[in-house]
Nucleic acid binder design. Structure first.
Length: 297
DNA sequence: TGGTAATGAGCAA
DNA sequence: TGCTCCTTACCAC
């Protein structure tokens, strides 16, 4: 899936383009017809993300809660204030950039295109639209439901007010591998398979290290590094975890994908730091874990 | 045309 | 631990 940074981009997009307006809500696919009816015609008052969960609050106290899962994506379009249509969500190609700037602005907004048959939700204002496909979760929540859900989510590195303490204590009290804890949304919210692998590499940490044996200064480093990496992800619309000196000879950002990561998806390639053919892939908790057996000890 | 993998997570066993 | 759901795109045949 889109990791946490993508969801924060979605929230930003909604905040800019839809919040403050009355929205028409529908479910072209039909599977969310009842939910859409609950907010159809209501005014959007706030959009935010917590980890990989997206929340759109309406003035009738109901909240649209979306989790994109592995395949979900939002597509946006509208008049000039929207820029041209773009999408945020499940990338289909490695390193794909989300919401690329359009080459030309749309001349005249005449309304949204016909929805794909798989469109779960379409939200429409007078000057733009947002389509959701493939989400694993899409529902309407009461305020209590939102509170209940958020209580189960750990601190989000992309939340500037977040207190990382719960993440530190989660690490101290479990012998589960640190590589598994980083993926646990109850311990820390928003990290996915790429940020997991890349931040562990940058910390020089063996993913199998029992979390309670990771020094406090290292868990603090992991938090701070994910704050930095994910913030970069929000700004770029793409995950780039390599330091500039490890992207030598790459000037165009369109060439970044092949130099954007240290270990994710790089089995059989030379490690950018130690130069060894030491990057391996294994299964951890049902997900593919990539790491360098020389750099991460 | 069909098999598969993909930045996820809930659930049964 | 493994199955399931959601959807798309790429690849091999």
């Amino acid at each position: 899936m889109p990791e946490g940074h993508s969801i924060h981009r979605v929230a930003r997009r909604f905040q800019d383009a839809f919040v403050g307006q009355r929205l028409r809500a529908s479910s072209p696919q039909g599977r969310f017809a009842q939910g859409a009816a609950l907010v159809d015609g209501a005014r959007a008052v706030e959009a935010y993300a917590h980890g990989k969960h997206f929340f759109l609050v309406f003035d009738n106290d109901l909240t649209l809660n979306v989790h994109l899962g592995m395949y979900g994506a939002w597509t946006f379009g509208g008049d000039a204030t929207f820029r041209a249509s773009s999408s945020i969500g499940a990338p289909r190609k490695m390193g794909e950039e989300e919401s690329p700037d359009s080459e030309e602005a749309e001349r005249e907004y005449v309304g949204p295109p016909a929805p794909r048959p798989t469109t779960r939700v379409r939200l429409e204002s007078d000057n733009g639209w947002a389509d959701l496909i493939g989400a694993t979760t899409c529902r309407i929540l009461e305020p209590t439901g939102v509170a209940e859900l958020r209580k189960k989510l750990g601190p989000d590195p992309l939340d500037t007010d977040a207190d990382p303490t719960p993440f530190y204590s989660a690490c101290r009290k479990t012998s589960r591998p640190i590589g598994a804890v980083l993926m646990d949304q109850q311990a820390i919210a928003g990290i996915g398979n790429i940020y997991r692998a890349e931040s562990l590499f940058r910390a020089g940490l063996d993913p199998h290290t029992p979390a309670h044996r990771v020094p406090d200064e290292t868990t603090a480093l992991l938090w701070r590094d994910n704050v930095r990496l994910m913030s970069t992800g929000v700004e770029l619309g793409r995950i780039v975890t390599t330091a500039p000196e490890h992207r030598l000879g790459v000037s165009s950002r369109h060439a970044w994908p092949t130099h954007a990561n240290y270990v994710y998806g790089r089995v059989g390639h030379t490690c950018r730091v130690c130069g060894n053919d030491a990057i391996v892939m294994e299964d951890m908790g049902g997900r593919k874990l990539y790491w360098c057996t020389v750099c991460q000890t």
